[in-house]
Design a protein around this nucleic acid. Structure first.
Lengths: 155, 155
DNA sequence: TAGAGAGTTGGAGTGCACTCCAAGCAAGCG
DNA sequence: CGCTTGCTTGGAGTGCACTCCAACTCTCTA
């Protein structure tokens, strides 16, 4: 199931995949993944997956009759999003707030949009910052490269 | 003094400003700045400036006869570079290695260039990563915006 | 010359995001 | 059955980059 299957007007409450389309590299769609399969797939450690659950960053995960976790494709979609937000440096506390709002349902949609928009602005700012540092790096590396060239030519 | 004043073939051993030209916002060039002036200028706390010195990230800073620090324009140049590397997420340990190499002199020039080049690659990778996350963010924000629009139009 | 304010030190404390540990339960295999 | 491998928990530990503290000295202005 992808986001494109939604009835119009619906915003899904739980998994909210990042983008439509099949996810590559996902263990064939059994929809009952063990923690180590999910660790492998996401690159997070099993420790971290349990910790995410403890702090409320992960919606409640299904269990077997003996209490072992079984993750669904929805859970993997959610972890995709979390992983991306994490890559862009969103603090875990903010992601937890977002997860809480998702759990609270429709009436938090505007606040969720604000949170994501603010974060997008932040990411844009950081890209610009990185670009300008890249210029400085280029400048300094050029100086070193020149020095090396002169040295190797014995000038 | 800027990097443009060097005799050809020389790579300066200590301050290595990020780029040529006058630095704006620098307390008028008395070349003897107190720690609080430097804190103000760099945005770092005085605590952090002392800590940088302790861990070897800052070359030895001049002192008054009573032991108070007096930073020079060269020190400020160095802090400019450190600040930029920090903004791009270079670990402090790597910056300390770089500072050590600068202190060791000419024969570390090639290694310094390698370190900076590797970091530049890293920054480029992170920019690409941020860009791709930006796409995901746009996609999700669009969904929220659509939902909000539909809700406000009562459709 | 008195007092405020800024500087000094080593070492301890903080916040974040994991990361690991010990002790125990459960499933599958020869 | 015993063994290995994987899962469970709460709580403790780690690494990074600061950040603050206590107890002091120094500088500057009135």
């Amino acid at each position: 199931m992808t986001v494109l299957d939604h009835a119009p007007g619906e915003v899904r409450d739980r998994a909210e995949p990042c983008r439509p389309g099949p996810k590559p590299g996902r263990p064939q769609g059994r929809d009952r993944y063990t923690i180590s399969e999910v660790a492998e797939y996401t690159g997070l450690s099993a420790h971290t997956l349990r910790w995410y659950e403890r702090i409320g960053l992960m919606p409640h995960v299904d269990r077997t009759h003996t209490g072992q976790r079984r993750y669904t494709d929805r859970d993997l979609d959610w972890l995709d999003l979390v992983g991306r937000l994490r890559l862009t440096g969103m603090p875990v506390a903010d992601m937890v707030r977002y997860a809480q709002m998702v759990r609270e349902g429709e009436h938090t949609v505007a606040a969720r949009e604000r949170l994501l928009s603010a974060h997008r602005d932040d990411v844009r700012r950081r890209i610009a910052e990185l670009r300008s540092t890249l210029d400085v790096l280029d400048y300094k590396i050029d100086i070193y490269a020149d020095a090396r060239r002169r040295a190797s030519e014995g000038v």
